[in-house]
């Protein structure tokens, strides 16, 4: 536990430094976009948040599966620990996207497939939190939450492929695993830095949230008393 304590602090502080450096690099030292001007610089917040909002849901669904199949208690703690952080990152993604939409599309909101499916993801996160909090029996709440998280995972491929399946205002991905990035390298490197930094910050938050869950659920165990 003490090693974890040191580890997450190290991850948190180093990620914060990486993120701030990347943000300054992206905001002040990269060139203006030919079409979008300076408004594109919001990608250093929007892209990491969007990417993580989906990744967190996938991790939640995987943890739910682990809990349902192997009854690993820590997996259940992880699911409910991730939910509020997932909701937060999705909210950041939606808000930053709306701010970006005003100068780029001329509107802050459009009911297109990508934006709507991300909003659905946000409501899903809130639904998961409210479902879990409505049961006083934690074990039952964990099981129901896990089932809902697994079923709700259907939304993730819909979000991912929405820009390909429907004609949307939202642009398709500039960085993919298979193709060469369509973004200029001078903008790409700070973006990668901001993604790594943001990822580290979120991981640290998940660790803190999981720690809280463990304390809450195991509060009557002797090892917790020794630890505290």
């Amino acid at each position: 536990m003490f090693q974890v304590e040191r580890a997450y602090k190290f991850i948190l502080y180093s990620s914060l430094i990486i993120y701030i450096v990347s943000l300054i690099w992206g905001l002040l030292f990269t060139q203006e976009d030919f079409v979008q001007g300076n408004s594109y610089r919001i990608i250093y917040l929007h892209v990491p948040a969007s990417f993580l909002s989906q990744s967190l849901y996938i991790s939640m669904a995987v943890a739910s599966f682990v809990y349902i199949v192997w009854r690993v208690k820590l997996a259940a703690y992880l699911v409910i620990s991730i939910a509020p952080i997932g909701a937060l990152t999705t909210f950041i993604a939606l808000t930053s996207g709306s701010i970006w939409g005003i100068p780029t599309w001329g509107t802050w909101w459009q009911w297109d497939a990508r934006i709507t499916s991300t909003l659905i993801l946000f409501i899903m996160y809130l639904g998961l939190i409210s479902l879990h909090s409505s049961f006083s029996n934690y074990e039952k709440a964990d099981k129901l939450l896990s089932w809902l998280a697994i079923v709700g995972a259907i939304n993730i491929p819909i979000i991912k492929k929405s820009v390909d399946w429907w004609s949307t205002l939202h642009q398709s991905a500039s960085i993919t695993l298979t193709d060469k990035p369509s973004i200029d390298p001078s903008m790409l490197y700070p973006l990668i830095g901001s993604m790594i930094g943001f990822f580290g910050i979120i991981i640290s938050l998940v660790i803190i949230s999981s720690k809280y869950q463990i304390f809450l659920r195991e509060k009557n165990k002797s090892w917790i008393k020794e630890y505290v």
């Binding site: 709507t116 659905i120 899903m124 639904g127 409210s130 079923v151 939304n155 819909i158």
Partner: peptide, 8 residues
């Protein structure tokens, strides 16, 4: 909790 799934 299920309404979001009905929106698509």
């Amino acid at each position: 909790i299920t309404l979001p799934m009905a929106l698509p």
